[in-house]
Design a protein around this nucleic acid. Structure first.
Length: 187
DNA sequence: CGATTTTGACCAGCGC
DNA sequence: GCGCTGGTCAAAATCG
């Protein structure tokens, strides 16, 4: 837990091929474009919500970000029980895209279908963090939603992985925004 | 009745 | 080595 580098995705994606089709939350971003906070620079403009000047505990203040690592994953078996099988992987962290939004509800509908699989109380936060998994068959995308203590109205959503399928609930022509985001991405 | 949420337990990584 | 914290699983409960 710490701060993910909050920034827009792959500004450094050396391998474009590896670049995900789009951000998993692009769709959602569009829907909440008006209240979408992403991009360190973009944020500066809308500093009304977060005055990230004196940050001390909350690393995530006014950044939205992304931090990607490997594209692998390492969930072979993590479960209770004898950990006999485990001699591989070190801890490949999948790319994670974090961004925060202003919303009264934690459950932000981004078009995909999620199933909650856990909830945990995190330190420095009054509100618990919820863990969701994409229910699409074969899609291992996960996301966690957490409300900030400082800004009760701010919800931090962290996506892990990229959806390998289309949105379950298509709506507006968000592809437009997608393109824009791509631009940032390329930037 | 099936899908999803809730909730406690378990495990792994990290810091001291 | 121990304790803390985060992340995940799974059984039970709840919802549509």
């Amino acid at each position: 837990m710490d701060s993910y580098q909050i920034l827009f995705p792959p500004s450094s994606s050396s391998s474009a091929s590896a670049a995900p089709p789009t951000f998993p939350f692009a769709h959602f971003a569009y829907k909440h474009a008006h209240e979408f906070h992403a991009g360190s620079e973009m944020m500066n403009h809308s500093n009304e919500t977060c005055s990230s000047s004196e940050v001390k505990d909350e690393p995530v203040n006014s950044h939205v970000g992304v931090s990607q690592d490997d594209e692998d994953k390492a969930r072979g078996d993590k479960k209770k029980g004898p950990s006999s099988s485990l001699s591989e992987k070190k801890k490949p962290k999948k790319p994670r895209y974090a961004f925060q939004t202003r919303s009264q509800v934690d459950i932000l509908d981004d078009g995909y279908r999620w199933r909650k699989y856990g909830q945990k109380a995190v330190k420095n936060n009054k509100f618990p963090r919820s863990y969701y998994k994409c229910t699409f068959h074969g899609c291992n995308v996960k996301k966690q939603v957490q409300r900030l203590t400082k800004d009760e109205g701010l919800v931090v959503t962290t996506y892990e992985g990229v959806h390998t399928h289309s949105i379950d609930k298509p709506t507006d022509n968000f592809e437009h925004i997608l393109n824009q985001m791509h631009i940032y991405n390329h930037f």
